[in-house]
């Protein structure tokens, strides 16, 4: 009988292991080309981003949800820089949605002229605050998606097109 109990316990333990958690801590920035601009899509884990913004801006905690966009966007502008063909490129983002896990932003870059030969991206969001954090930058081009993983050791990448 004891054997059966142990067996059932192990089966329950094994079944319990089937629910996976998000093991890696990372944000995601997606760039999709349109004529003369890039559309931007950003995604962070909610808790991680709020924690990071509060660490840099203590008054953030007392703010109402309606004013989050201002604080969170400012944090993103401080930590993400872009350049096309080695020339700095400004962009705008807006808080789009918040669900139980993720916070989403959408936006677009300013218009640029000429063919894009390279895109440089610096993204050090959260990596100074959270151990082993990384930021994935994905560049969509039709069906092809190229992804780059930025970290504390390598916060910047240059993508040659």
């Amino acid at each position: 009988m004891k054997f059966i109990k142990i067996l059932l316990l192990l089966i329950a333990f094994a079944l319990n292991l089937q629910s996976n958690s998000h093991g890696l801590k990372m944000s995601r920035l997606n760039l999709s080309p349109t004529p003369n601009t890039y559309e931007l899509s950003l995604q962070f884990d909610v808790v991680d981003l709020l924690q990071a913004v509060h660490a840099e801006c203590p008054e953030f905690r007392s703010e109402k949800t309606e004013s989050w966009n201002e604080f969170l966007s400012a944090y993103i502008y401080d930590h993400i820089d872009m350049a096309i063909n080695e020339k700095p490129l400004n962009y705008q983002v807006t808080l789009n949605s918040i669900d139980s896990h993720f916070i989403h932003f959408t936006g677009k870059t300013n218009a640029f002229e000429g063919a894009v030969e390279s895109i440089s991206i610096t993204n050090d969001c959260l990596i100074s605050l959270l151990h082993d954090y990384s930021n994935v930058v994905s560049l969509s081009d039709g069906e092809d998606v190229r992804s780059f993983r930025l970290s504390k050791q390598r916060p910047q990448t240059k993508i040659n097109l």
């Binding site: 996976n20 190229r146 993983r149």
Partner: peptide, 17 residues
């Protein structure tokens, strides 16, 4: 030393009875 491009990054949970 330098990660140029991330081609795949997944967590996997696989069970066999």
């Amino acid at each position: 030393t330098t990660t140029l491009e991330q081609l795949s990054l997944t967590d996997i949970n696989e069970s066999n009875v």
